[in-house]
Amino acid sequence: MSNIILAPLVVSIISSVLAAIIAIVDGIVNNYGEVKININGKKDITVKGGASLLTTLSETGIFVPSACGGRGSCGACKVKVLSDVGPHLPTETPLLTPEEMKENVRLSCQVKVKKDIEIWLPEELFNVKKYKTRIEAIKDVTHDIKEVKFKLLEPTEINFKAGQYMQIVIPPYEKIKESTQRAYSISSLPSQKDSFELLIRLVPGGIATTYVHNYLKEGDIIEVIGPFGDFYLRDTDADVIGVAGGSGMAPLKSIIFDMYEKGITNRNVWYFFGARSLRDLYYVEMFKELEKKWPNFHFIPALSEPLPEDNWEGETGFITDVLDKYIKEKMDPNTPKEGYLCGSPGMIGACVKIMTNNGISEDKIYYDKFA
């Protein structure tokens, strides 16, 4: 009996000793000292080696987008590496195209800075900032989506394009020991420079959404980083076809109201919003009021599974089917069209197929696809 009791204890002690040895060896062997990062052939920064390129750059005030917080699952943190840092890792290849791999584009969260390195970054990333904010208001807009307003404290103003997104820095709490980041599209107008709003849907088990829905309170101080993204209205005369679902409402709301505020009302705008039942639908009156003021704006909400008590008289079925019907039956086939999509990867893929089947070229369809 004593041997049975002692065995797990011995194994535990041996495991602890081995872990300590590994930690010491790792600290000695992987002590890379100071290394240099050359950026765009113009700027050298000296950093401590050993961390990921994503983390290392952020510590110097250069923020590369990362919708997943550096987990290697979003593919947003792409950086062109001009020096040899070894072959692409299995964690990178599923998120890179053959063309990107040929040009040595890497996921900066997966590349460790072990020696001097040369990289190229888009110039707009140098305008990205970290902001200190205070939570000014939290409002339930559906049973699982909160509208969160962030008041800027430092810096006190923000400049962004309607459609772009911010990354919230989620502090440690019971689900995480270290801070992490998640990306959410801005739902407010760019003209509102001292604050901004995000729409955040609760994802069961989600690290960031659990924090926002269950822990975040009005008055809390939160860091955010941004703005990021190339999802914004293109300067053309084409008709705009927007499709969203859930919290994908955010960038389309910002783009549409920004168009109206700026007087870009000559373009036809068709906004399709898909929800399951009436409890998942929101901002309906807001968009119906906009329809009354803007003859070229058309708001088409649709419920895929309306409940009897919803007494729903609007469009029913999948939003992709409603989209297909309206393109065929309601829209002028002779006018150029652009697609603006925000929702799940599955919804976006289905919408792209509908649009291309109806003559809209894929290079005229824009989206941010957040898993």
Rank of each mutant, 00 (worst) to 15 (best):
P171L: 09
Q110I: 00
E147V: 08
R134Q: 15
K132S: 12
V169H: 10
E154L: 10
S185N: 13
I170N: 00
S179M: 14
T142A: 05
Y184W: 09
A208P: 00
I221N: 13
S195E: 12
R201Q: 09
P155A: 07
E218K: 15
V128H: 06
L216N: 06
G219A: 15
Y211W: 13
K175C: 03
K112P: 00
Y165P: 00
I168Y: 06
M166P: 00
E154G: 02
T210G: 08
A137I: 05
I119M: 08
E124K: 13
V212I: 15
L152D: 07
D116Q: 11
E124F: 13
K217D: 15
E123C: 07
C109Y: 01
T180V: 13
P204Y: 05
V128Q: 08
S179C: 10
A183L: 08
I135S: 04
E174G: 00
T210Y: 09
P171W: 05
G163Y: 03
E154W: 06
A183D: 01
F126S: 05
L152W: 10
I200Q: 06
Y184R: 08
K175D: 10
S185V: 12
E197M: 14
V148P: 01
F160D: 00
G206T: 04
H143G: 14
K139R: 15
P155C: 04
V148W: 05
K130L: 10
Y215N: 11
Y184K: 12
K146M: 06
V169P: 01
V111C: 00
L153N: 11
L125H: 00
V169Q: 14
M166L: 11
K132Y: 13
Q110M: 10
K139A: 05
P172M: 05
E197L: 08
S179D: 11
D116N: 14
I207C: 01
C109F: 07
A137Q: 10
S187Q: 12
V212Q: 08
M166H: 05
E157C: 11
F160G: 03
K193V: 12
F160M: 02
T209V: 07
I168A: 09
C109R: 09
I117L: 10
K146G: 14
K146F: 13
Q164G: 04
K146P: 04
A208D: 02
K129Q: 14
I186K: 02
T133M: 06
K151R: 15
G205S: 09
